[in-house]
């Protein structure tokens, strides 16, 4: 197999909050077709890393480079989140951030916003092209709901969905922005084992069928072992290991980081 196309390249990313260094020169790469994972104990700086990549924070140092296929390379530092999303990088949130008073379908339709164009005047006139665009938004959003298994809830309010379904809705919403790289922030948090298994399947399906590369954050490393490769491990803002699941499992640093934490939890 030929060398896979590199999609995301993060070099020496550092983020300071006042005197606190939340992320300390972390480098990471995601290639086409990969399901990469970023794991680490709570407070390791994983979400901050995500927020830097997606434009919510402006990193103190380092480069975030995006290499879309067939397009020139773009540096993402300091870009607004909506620009990052437009470039093909979509995300979900650790603490679910759905539009709770909108319907499930509408939530996904919001994701179509940056791929459609009707402005104020065209929306008022509502000519044929706008109507066609609207219909396209509805249809494609509905298709996405079907893919994540939420079609039957299309007209429910997002806030009335069960927890696991809300997580899947976030994924559908992110996919609606037509990303080539999807960033999932603890997608399995709060799910029961069965829901987690379903989620694993969904993530694999997205990767295979939609040809979307995935970078996911997980707190619990057992969950990612089945589906992700490579895995990056962070602790106290620093990257402490990277490699295949097997390599990670055998890495003494990782074991220490996790065992250290588990004893704390037991106590």
């Amino acid at each position: 197999m030929a060398e896979k196309h590199k999609l995301l390249e993060v070099k020496g990313l550092t983020m300071d909050f006042g005197g606190l260094r939340a992320v300390d020169s972390v480098s990471l790469e995601v290639h086409e077709g990969e399901i990469a994972a970023l794991i680490g104990p709570n407070g390791a700086g994983k979400t901050t890393f995500f927020n830097c990549v997606t434009g919510i924070y402006n990193p103190t140092k380092g480069d975030i480079l995006l290499h879309p296929k067939g397009l020139p390379t773009r540096r993402l530092n300091g870009l607004k989140p909506n620009k990052v999303t437009e470039m093909g990088l979509a995300r979900t949130f650790q603490n679910i951030r759905l539009f709770s008073d909108m319907t499930v379908l509408e939530n996904v339709m919001i994701g179509r916003h940056c791929r459609t164009s009707a402005g104020i005047f065209r929306s008022i006139i509502r000519d044929k092209s706008v109507r066609r665009e609207e219909q396209e938004i509805v249809e494609s959003s509905y298709q996405l709901l079907k893919k994540v298994g939420l079609a039957e809830f299309a007209n429910e309010f997002a806030k009335n969905l069960p927890y696991g379904a809300q997580r899947r809705l976030e994924i559908a919403r992110a996919m609606a922005t037509e990303p080539f790289l999807l960033l999932l922030d603890e997608p399995a948090a709060g799910m029961n084992p069965q829901e987690t298994a379903e989620l694993d399947q969904l993530i694999c399906r997205i990767s295979e069928e939609e040809r979307i590369a995935i970078l996911l954050i997980e707190h619990d490393m057992k969950l990612v072992m089945n589906i992700s490769n490579p895995i990056y491990v962070m602790e106290y803002g620093k990257k402490i290991a990277e490699g295949s699941p097997q390599e990670i499992k055998d890495n003494p640093k990782v074991i220490e980081a996790y065992l250290g934490e588990e004893t704390e939890e037991d106590a």
Partner: peptide, 18 residues
Amino acid sequence: RAWIALREDEIACVAMGI
């Protein structure tokens, strides 16, 4: 829809490309 989404959650809204 973008207006309503903005009302509901600004951060999610910009993350969705608005």
